[in-house]
Simulated assay, not measured.
Amino acid sequence: MYTLPTLLLATIPTLTLAAKVHTVFVGKDGKTFTPQVVSAEVGDQVVYTFSPSHDVVQSDFSSPCAASADGIYSGPFSGTEDGKKKFLVKIENTDPVYYYCSTEKHCQDGMVGGINVPKDGNATIDAYANAAKTVPESNRPDALRKGELLDDQGLATATPSATPDPTTTPTESSSEPTGTATEPESTGAAAVLGGPGSVNAGLAVVLGVAGWFL
């Protein structure tokens, strides 16, 4: 029996580590984001999994509980079942991102979180939370921004437009995505470049050619 030539072996698609998927539970344990802070790289994804009556609104560090001009917003969640809304955000840079829940006084009560927030210094998540305590009220954008609601297959069901219409009500999703991390912290989930379909096709070609040498 002949072994596969090196050239043929070289054609087998390589499994390449790519983006991590970070899951953040919104309101699962009360007025909290779990985990409160995520460390993410460019290309990673953050999936927010909601409990009822919570949302995610990005703000500037200097303006806690106030929506930033062009930050992320998940839209409201008026459903009644945990995990029946998921919001995907793709990480495009490693700048610190601060966010809060705009429901009633949740932000002022400490329901704040962030991505790539400094662990020490004057701009920690604790400093942001302390500043939020003194804010009279929270606000929110008028429409979904910079993210995607997901269906059961992890496909987008609603995406923000380039210029959101302030009168548009975000589409609600009652579904769960696939391929997300199974633990609150990032689990190092790997993606395959080209997708599983391309891997299977490549293996089929290789194995077919290998038959010539058997």
Rank of each mutant, 00 (worst) to 15 (best):
Q58H: 08
T167Y: 04
L149R: 06
F213V: 11
L149W: 05
T34W: 02
S102I: 03
P177D: 13
V47E: 03
S62E: 15
I72C: 07
K84E: 13
A131S: 15
G211S: 12
L9A: 07
T103I: 04
S63I: 04
F87S: 04
T178S: 13
C107T: 02
S173Q: 08
G113K: 00
F50A: 02
K90Y: 01
T23R: 15
L203K: 14
T80P: 02
E137C: 02
E176V: 13
A18G: 14
Q45C: 05
P177F: 08
P35W: 03
A123E: 14
Y2F: 11
A156F: 07
N200A: 14
T6M: 08
L207M: 11
Y2D: 12
T103H: 03
D55K: 03
P76R: 03
E185I: 10
A190D: 11
V26R: 00
A66S: 13
Y128L: 11
I115A: 09
P164E: 06
L88P: 01
V26E: 00
V199Y: 09
T157G: 10
A210T: 08
V199C: 04
S174P: 00
T103P: 00
Y2S: 13
D70W: 07
V135E: 01
A189I: 14
A210E: 05
E81L: 10
S53M: 10
A66W: 01
G154D: 12
G194D: 10
T180P: 00
A129K: 11
L15N: 05
V135M: 05
L8T: 05
P5F: 04
V199L: 15
K146Q: 15
F33P: 00
S74P: 01
F61C: 11
I115K: 03
C65G: 02
T134L: 09
D29R: 09
Y98D: 09
T80Y: 05
F61S: 12
S138Q: 08
T14H: 09
G79K: 01
S68G: 13
E104V: 08
S138E: 05
T134E: 13
L207G: 01
S51V: 02
T178V: 15
V21M: 08
A191G: 12
N93M: 10
P52G: 04
M111N: 02
V205L: 13
P177L: 12
P170N: 06
N122H: 09
N139A: 10
G43H: 05
Q58M: 14
V38T: 14
P118H: 11
P170G: 07
G27P: 01
V192P: 02
S78Q: 07
S68A: 15
K20M: 06
G71N: 12
N130P: 01
F61G: 11
P170Q: 04
P76S: 09
T157P: 05
F33M: 08
N139E: 10
P170H: 03
G194W: 08
G154Y: 06
G110S: 09
T187H: 06
E176L: 09
Q108K: 07
T32D: 04
L149F: 06
